[in-house]
């Protein structure tokens, strides 16, 4: 296929995407992550990077849907890295150490019955991320920052 012209090809590019995530809306689960994934496919990142971003973004998105009232999933995409911010207004996390343990979950039963809330969310994100930061205030909300580097980018 033919390509469009780009007068600024030399300059390093970035795009910012932002998705609102509604707490408790399981019908929309994954919409933001899938949109982000398709965008990365169009950019042509290596499959392994896309998979890590997609999984991390999906877990972060699900965390907002399961636990929070509302939130935003934001992504900044550059040739070198993909950075994701997931910020929510919600209950916050009381014990981050526990939340980072595999299998630890505070999700209520009805959510577990839907197959979510297995206590793998944060550990999964950490496994996929090169940089993982979390900031939480009980009763206010949680902010997560995930950076995944594109290791194939050499220049």
């Amino acid at each position: 296929m033919k390509n469009g012209t780009n007068p600024e090809a030399d300059r390093d590019q970035k795009i910012c995407l932002s998705f609102n995530v509604e707490g408790g809306n399981f019908l929309a689960a994954g919409e933001a992550s899938i949109r982000l994934k398709h965008t990365l496919q169009h950019i042509g990142y290596p499959a392994s990077l896309i998979r890590r971003v997609a999984v991390a973004a999906y877990e972060a998105e699900m965390n907002i849907i399961i636990h929070a009232d509302s939130g935003v999933l934001k992504a900044e995409v550059t040739p070198e890295a993909v950075t994701i911010w997931a910020e929510d207004k919600g209950p916050g996390i009381e014990d981050i150490g526990l939340a980072m343990q595999e299998g630890y979950s505070t999700a209520p039963n009805y959510i577990r019955e839907m197959g979510f809330g297995a206590g793998m969310g944060l550990p999964n994100i950490k496994r996929c991320a090169d940089i993982f930061e979390i900031e939480t205030h009980v009763g206010v909300g949680t902010k997560i920052r995930i950076v995944i580097f594109n290791k194939q980018k050499t220049n």
Binding site: M1, N3, A9, Q13, L17, I43, A47
Partner: peptide, 23 residues
């Protein structure tokens, strides 16, 4: 092997620019 046909351009910077334009 995966097909890389989905990407807008081989050069990542250029592809990002094109995605931005298309948005």
């Amino acid at each position: 092997e995966p097909y890389c046909i989905m990407s807008l351009d081989q050069d990542i910077s250029k592809a990002i620019y094109m995605v931005e334009q298309s948005e």
